[in-house]
Design a protein around this nucleic acid. Structure first.
Lengths: 186, 186
DNA sequence: GTCCACATGTAACTGGTTACATGATTGG
DNA sequence: CCAATCATGTAACCAGTTACATGTGGAC
């Protein structure tokens, strides 16, 4: 039950249409909660039916026409409730770690190339995050960094940076281990 | 499409019944690919229908009686294929980061307590991983650490340890930031 | 004989993914 | 007027979750 709350957050930051939301999910919000446009339209419909958001008035005949939404007081209240409520961390699932474990049984043939590919992807993501940090949170420039909102946003970005840093380091270490493995295991 | 491969890996390590698999998922494998017994039974049925595994002969009348499975050559081949095939990392989703971003909009009331609770949970998990490392991969004792299989297993465990280390550090940092926030934001 | 733990299973639901359909607007 | 792009949507499917049902065997 997180997608509706991700959408409420995005709409509070700025009222938007479905496609605008989709694009914002591809950028900032999607870094830790991705969604496709199909999911977003479905969820917008539910949120409107529940009275959490409403379409901005401009009488549109549904299809092909842009339809923007804003959050209603009930929606804001629901988001505040959800944010404050305790939630257990959801069980962790990672395919690469699973494949590595499997490769201990069926052989490491082929997986090394994909480790390298993932390393490149994580490095790229890390670069992207660092660019955002440099742009939006450069120290000593009296910017968003000093406001409570800015501090919270920076905290979230730090999590992304540190996570990608972890993955690049771990993948580098894994590849080094592979290089030391005897030939018949590679 | 990862659960069947997680099960194949577990069954190759040791032929088991559904409940035995469930318990092993609660321990080792579940650390990075969790599954409930309902999922496991459903998947065992499919894997058997596809000819990837078979029930060990002992003619059981289905219910209440233990039923063990072993992997067939086709199953091993499928696991090897899947392990070697490139796979994109799946989009990352994290509820706590989403809540933190929402709290920048609707206020941080209540979330601090849950950050503390998560910190305790991650510390506990970290301790558990470190105990496993101490038990199974203590250096200089000529154990599983030196074999290729042992090295791969240790690599996977290191990912768990480093991930939990990251979370405890990040949560600690987040709580420190909260302590500095002006009163009306807490 | 009853209760409890072990063991296998069914059903309904939820959320995310993939593929496709349809209308409006704009530039050439 | 045609193609490309913007925009909203439907449908089918798949995997994970939650709740519940049923049978077996041993302890007391």
């Amino acid at each position: 039950m997180s997608l509706p709350h991700a959408i409420l957050t995005a709409l509070l930051e700025k009222p938007s249409s479905g496609l605008e939301l989709t694009r914002r999910f591809d950028r900032s919000i999607g870094y830790f909660w991705s969604a496709t446009h199909q999911q977003i339209y479905r969820e917008l419909g539910k949120l409107e039916a529940e009275g959490h958001i409403r379409a901005l008035p401009a009488e549109q005949p549904t299809r092909g026409q842009k339809k923007s939404y804003e959050v209603l007081p009930a929606g804001r209240a629901e988001l505040a409730r959800w944010t404050a409520a305790p939630q257990d961390p959801k069980p962790y699932r990672d395919t690469m770690l699973l494949r590595l474990r499997a490769s201990a049984v069926v052989g490491t043939e082929g997986i090394e190339a994909d480790l390298r590919r993932h390393l490149a992807l994580h490095r790229q993501q890390l670069t992207e995050y660092r660019e955002i940090e440099e742009r939006d949170f450069r120290p000593g420039t009296g910017n968003t960094r000093t406001s409570p909102q800015g501090r919270l946003q920076h905290l979230v970005l730090r999590a992304g940076i540190d996570l990608e840093t972890f993955w690049t380091q771990w993948l580098t270490h894994a590849l080094a281990e592979f290089a030391e493995l005897p030939g018949e295991n590679r």
